[in-house]
């Protein structure tokens, strides 16, 4: 009996050993002597059907604002917006947040060039986005730029924004895009007059760009933060806090209606 077990284990072990040695040989052959055969570069996505028509698919693009930096619950305005939308509709809502902290307009433009991002975008019914905050306030140390530099930053930003909208429209003709404007986080500081003017002009130019495309709506937030700005800002004095995000979220949600029933 015992002899049987020991012999079996020994034989099994020998066979296993041969198997592992062949694995090792395969490793050496594959890793050291094989020629590279990169997979075909063409991505052949199977034709995606438009997501379930009963489902509302929201894609969020942009920077830290869309990510929700500063909101301790991590929801950001996207989360609060969805909360509001859930009250309005019984359809399932699905969100994909593709925002990257610190992203600028050129980064977003590059991101939109990726196949998978485009695929997500194609499936979307609603797109919400924030961009430009990092172009204007270079990482929170804001507006130390001279008027000329700001003018330059604005020009290149507007060019990028135009191409961003163009890309979105090309990929997805129907989705409603909500472009969320900037607020002035420094409106309680000494040179508020100057900074506010800059932000206003920035927003105006962005809204003009948005207006060139169908179904891209510029949503202002400037007014939301005009009074008592500190109540709505996070401790970094730059990003909104929970209450700030809630207000943005509610504002965007108020623009989304489901009356037609076949809302795309």
């Amino acid at each position: 009996m015992r002899r049987g077990i020991v012999s079996t284990i020994t034989i099994v072990s020998v066979l296993a050993g041969i198997l592992w040695i062949s694995g090792l040989a395969m490793t050496i052959q594959d890793q050291f002597f094989s020629t590279a055969m990169p997979p075909a570069d063409t991505t052949k996505y199977t034709k995606e059907k438009k997501a379930d028509s009963r489902e509302i698919y929201i894609v969020a693009l942009g920077d830290s604002l869309t990510r929700g930096t500063g909101d301790e619950s991590g929801k950001g305005y996207v989360g609060y917006m969805v909360d509001q939308l859930r009250k309005k509709t019984t359809k399932p809502i699905r969100v994909t947040n593709l925002a990257i902290k610190g992203q600028r307009s050129d980064g977003l433009l590059k991101q939109l060039g990726q196949t998978e991002i485009q695929r997500q975008l194609k499936l979307a019914n609603i797109v919400v986005m924030t961009i430009g905050g990092n172009d204007l306030f270079q990482g929170g140390e804001a507006l130390r730029l001279t008027p000329k530099q700001i003018e330059q930053a604005k020009d290149s930003y507007l060019r990028n924004l135009d191409r961003i909208f163009q890309t979105i429209r090309r990929v997805n003709k129907d989705a409603v895009v909500f472009y969320i404007g900037l607020y002035n986080p420094f409106s309680d500081l000494g040179d508020a007059k100057k900074t506010s003017a800059i932000v206003r002009q920035w927003n105006f130019a962005s809204a003009e760009t948005a207006a060139r495309y169908p179904n891209i709506i510029a949503v202002p937030t400037f007014d939301l933060f005009a009074l008592h700005v500190n109540d709505y800002l996070y401790s970094d004095h730059f990003h909104p806090n929970k209450d700030g995000y809630k207000r943005i979220g509610e504002r965007v949600a108020s623009l989304i209606t489901f009356t037609e029933g076949d809302k795309k």
Binding site: L19, W20, M26
Partner: peptide
């Protein structure tokens, strides 16, 4: 199989 071979090694 390759990974098992390496693990064996």
């Amino acid at each position: 199989l390759i990974e098992l071979g390496l693990a064996w090694f």
